[in-house]
Each structure stands twice: as C-alpha cells, then as structure tokens.
Design a protein around this nucleic acid. Structure first.
Length: 218
DNA sequence: CACCAGGCAAGTA
DNA sequence: TACTTGCATGGT
C-alpha cells in the first residue's frame, strides 16, 4: 500500500532531487536552518557561509555568535538558530573531532539519541541529518506527511511523530534512497495540494483513496 | 493587508 | 500531561 503510494507519487512528480548538498556538513547546517522556514531563505544563509569559507565544522564553531547571527539572518529565527547550530557544532567538534565521518560511523540509534539530546534538535531534524547527511535508512516525518496521510484517511490526526515514522518503516524496505525520495515527494504533494485550502479535486492521490475517503482538515 | 514556510523548546495551567 | 506562545525573514 505504501509502496503503491510511492510509485504513484514518483510517477506523477518524478524525482525531486532533494538535498544531496555539497557535503554532509552542509546538509547538517541546512537541517537546522530550514526549521519552519522555506528552503529559498536557507539557500541565502548557506551561500553567505560558503562565501566566507565557513562550511567546515571547526571554522564555523570558532566564529563568534554575533557574526554567525548576521550570516544566517536570511533564514529567519536567526538568534535561536545561531544557538542551535552552535549546540550541534559542540557535539560534532568535541565528541567527534569535527569529523562527520567519525560521527556517522557511530551506531545510528546511539547517534539519534545524541542528536535528540542537543537543544534545538527535535525528531525531524535528527532524522533529516541521519537520512540526508549520514545515509541511514530512517524515515523523516514532517507536517505535510502528517497532513497528507491524515486527510486521506491513512492515519488518524492524533498520530504522533514516532507512530507515523513506524507506520512507514514497518510497511517499507529499509532503503535510504527511497526514503529520501519518498519524503521529498510527500513535501511536494503537501505543498502543492494539501494546504489549508486544499486542491483535492486535482490532487494525484484523488484516485487512490482507501475506504473512508477524504476527511475534514483538522 | 494576511498568511505561510521541509520545528522546537519554554511557558502556562 | 496537554495546550499555547515566541522565534523572524522573505515570498505570495
């Protein structure tokens, strides 16, 4: 069922080419910066860091917080995100000598716990780092995932992050590239068709509703 | 003008 | 435990 949904989304939209950034570290930075923010704004912030030669763990950790704030300002929430970035950098630099390879060599479940212990990293950011930077086959859940599936009756609106994550991982093979593409496709269909004013009439999923059909938004 | 974007943590009762 | 609010820029 979930595989069929994936095939249909891929057929309707094609590959989304999401987020193999120039380096795993850049992906980690982006994972923090994109929290509740459009990717377009994040691109400017990352470009600022790249122009300054700061897309490297130790260099960035040495940068004073105020300067970091100014560089990432276009991504919004710049004061809190500067703190959050530095919290992540502290883990990377102090526990893994600033090496993403060393960090990703760690056991994925242990690393997930370590990431979640960082103030400013919640489940989606942790899983985004694991999947998109480390290549670990873990499913990333976001607000669109929840909304699309709930509205189509696949899950209940009350389902929480870990329940939705399990729902996907139990129903699909452990395949990181597929999880990568699946999440990107769900964001795409959510953004295009499943907003607060839905465009369900033209949604590609309209023809594959499970028994129960569309439910009311929230 | 209002509303939204690839969340998260802190505050309140 | 279960809600609510703050965080902030840039695009529609």
């Amino acid at each position: 069922m979930l595989k069929e949904l994936y095939d249909r989304l891929l057929g309707a939209f094609g590959p989304q080419h999401w987020w193999p950034g120039d380096s795993p570290f850049e992906v980690m930075v982006g994972a923090i910066l994109v929290q509740n923010t459009s990717w377009k704004n994040v691109e400017r912030a990352i470009a600022n860091l790249r122009d300054e030669g700061l897309l490297e763990p130790c260099q960035l950790f040495e940068l004073p917080v105020q300067e970091l704030q100014e560089l990432i300002r276009p991504a919004g929430y710049f004061r809190i995100k500067a703190k959050r970035l530095r919290n992540l950098l502290r883990l990377l630099v102090e526990q893994y000598a600033g090496s993403t390879e060393a960090m990703f060599a760690s056991d994925p479940e242990r690393l997930r716990e370590q990431l979640l212990a960082v103030n400013g990293i919640g489940p989606e950011t942790a899983d985004s780092i694991l999947l998109y930077a480390a290549g670990v086959p873990t499913f990333v859940v976001d607000t669109y995932t929840h909304r699309v599936l709930a509205r189509h009756g696949w899950i209940g609106y009350e389902a929480d992050y870990d329940q939705i994550k399990e729902y996907f991982q139990d129903g699909l093979p452990d395949d990181a590239p597929m999880f990568n593409e699946y999440h990107a496709l769900l964001v795409r269909v959510g953004h295009d068709y499943c907003r607060k004013t839905p465009k369900c009439d033209t949604c590609p999923l309209r023809e594959m509703l499970p028994p129960g059909g569309l439910s009311e938004p929230d």
